[in-house]
């Protein structure tokens, strides 16, 4: 058991160092306009890359996932909040899963 516990602590320490390094090291505003522009686009790129195409494999059935994605995009286009978009997508996946 000490093997597994040691391994878990190792995973935790590695992950923590990755997360904490930049936010503790970069205490000042970065002056370079290019780097600031780069960082401006990072969140949108990260979130898009995390979402697509992974979302199509999130439900165990590509068809229901595609329908759920369409529902989420539609609701988001109408500026619904996170909870409404998430619940709408879940409902569409669940209901379409009963038929597909």
């Amino acid at each position: 058991m000490s093997y597994a516990v040691t391994g878990v602590i190792l995973m935790a320490v590695v992950t923590y160092i990755i997360r904490v390094l930049p936010i503790t090291v970069f205490k000042k505003q970065i002056e370079s306009r290019y780097i600031r522009s780069f960082l401006y686009y990072v969140p949108y790129a990260v979130i898009a890359s995390l979402t697509f195409p992974g979302i199509f494999y999130a439900t165990g059935n590509v068809m229901t996932a595609v329908l759920g994605t369409a529902a989420a995009i539609l609701l988001a286009l109408f500026r619904q909040g996170l909870v409404v978009v998430a619940i709408g997508a879940i409902l569409v996946v669940y209901i379409s899963g009963l038929f597909l």
Partner: peptide
């Protein structure tokens, strides 16, 4: 994933 869509 749906939340990510709602964010971007």
């Amino acid at each position: 994933y749906a939340m990510f869509i709602a964010i971007i």
